[in-house]
Design a protein around this nucleic acid. Structure first.
Lengths: 235, 235
DNA sequence: TGCCACGGTTAAGGCGGCGCTAAGACAGCC
DNA sequence: GGCTGTCTTAGCGCCGCCTTAACCGTGGCA
């Protein structure tokens, strides 16, 4: 069953939420502050996060922003604030749904399922996954490029798998550290750099002439073929 | 821009919805009955469908069911019924979101964007922002103008993205400094000037003959195609 | 018409991100 | 306990980008 993280400071509300979720057979975990929630989200890898906007330590929108900087996990905001302005801000900050308290357990469950359903469709990756010359078999944990097998260590494979999953979008090193290394606070960006360098070598490309692994200076890296230029130069 | 199909029988509500959507630059089409909506959804292949539950011919839930049978298009239910039971049924029938009337245009737009955002990862059909000849992909952090890719630095991209977000309105340099540079107290307006100049060059236009980036002397800059101000300038 | 303020552009300089190498730390395995 | 393979950390050099300053054109105003 899906694992859901509840970030809510009010103990009564929190325990009620957790009980309702457990009754419907979700696996649950919780945190009482924004920072703790962030940490938990990286550590537990929940399938979905329910977050209150009125947390004691950090502004709810800030929590959302930080969460999004570190993970693409679906988020449902559940709060008492019902002003349209708040709703728009939260959704634009990356929330997938917004629920105004009080709400019934049935509706919460239905909305959770709706978000998870949509997200599942989004992340459903066919196996093996093909991106340009690269073929990645998640089940066998093997990869080939141009038909030739690539020898990868465990870390390298995880890194490559995550990059493939997010192919076409820019991914920050911070996010890689959180998602691949499971370290919420990253000062060890250099480690990511080194692994990226090794990955490049094993993929048979260089930083100057990338084929799949492009660096976006000041932001992160982007994996995938360069955009299908409309004005494509004919070979 | 995304194409949205509105299925709603009440003419006043329908036209209000269509106007609100058109105001926000969505392409729109509509149908007044469930069956017509179904037909339209297949024919037009919209990016998202907004459907009322109280249609004259078929029960709204039935429409949803049939729609899901033929298409995976995202659906937002917008209706007056606020019973939790209805909400749960609609979401379980495959709706992606459920909005209780009355709601503001801002919230509708935010929810549309939230659903499309989550969906875009699924279809890999990118949902980039288009303003005239400019296409801006926030996820990949790439931009093209007239089909040709534009090489942008991180700052330049952020600046352009913010201008696109506020397209059509005048933006002060102080605001840019605050929003793009994250420096609330800045007297270093010249930095903004320099970046705007570089942006102009990369977009292939000049200050004298602007296409998208217009300067409003004494106030700031305006990004966009049209001149919303007085047509006082004679040829 | 002359002054002033504002905006556009260019060039120079310095900071910092990034790629890579190499060495130390660590765990697994025989 | 030694060996092997992997991960982390530190360090270095390059180069891209941002800032700052200076210059110039232009619009506004008296």
């Amino acid at each position: 069953m899906p694992h859901i993280l509840v970030v809510e400071d009010e103990p009564h509300v929190r325990s009620a939420l957790l009980r309702a979720l457990a009754d419907r057979d979700y696996a649950t975990s919780w945190a009482a502050t924004g920072m703790a929630g962030l940490e938990q989200a990286v550590k537990d890898r929940p399938d979905l996060v329910i977050v209150d906007l009125g947390l004691p330590d950090v502004d709810g929108h800030e929590v959302l922003r930080m969460l999004r900087a570190v993970s693409a996990v679906p988020v449902i905001v559940a709060t008492a604030r019902e002003e349209e302005d708040e709703i728009v801000r939260a959704l634009d900050a990356g929330a997938d749904d917004y629920l105004v308290k009080p709400f019934g357990a049935g509706q919460l469950d239905a909305r959770i399922r709706a978000v998870l359903r949509r997200n599942q469709a989004a992340t459903r990756a066919e196996n093996p996954l093909t991106i340009g010359p690269l073929v990645l078999d998640a089940a066998a944990r093997t990869a080939t490029i141009d038909g030739r097998p690539v020898e990868l260590t465990a870390r390298e494979f995880d890194l490559l798998a995550y990059l493939c999953q997010r192919a076409g979008t820019v991914v920050s090193k911070r996010e890689l550290l959180a998602e691949v290394w499971r370290q919420p606070y990253g000062a060890a960006d250099k480690t990511v750099d080194v692994h990226l360098s090794w990955l490049r070598r094993k993929l048979g490309e260089s930083a100057e002439q990338p084929r799949l692994l492009h660096t976006v200076r000041g932001v992160g890296v982007r994996f995938g073929l360069t955009e299908p230029a409309v004005e494509g130069e004919p070979s």
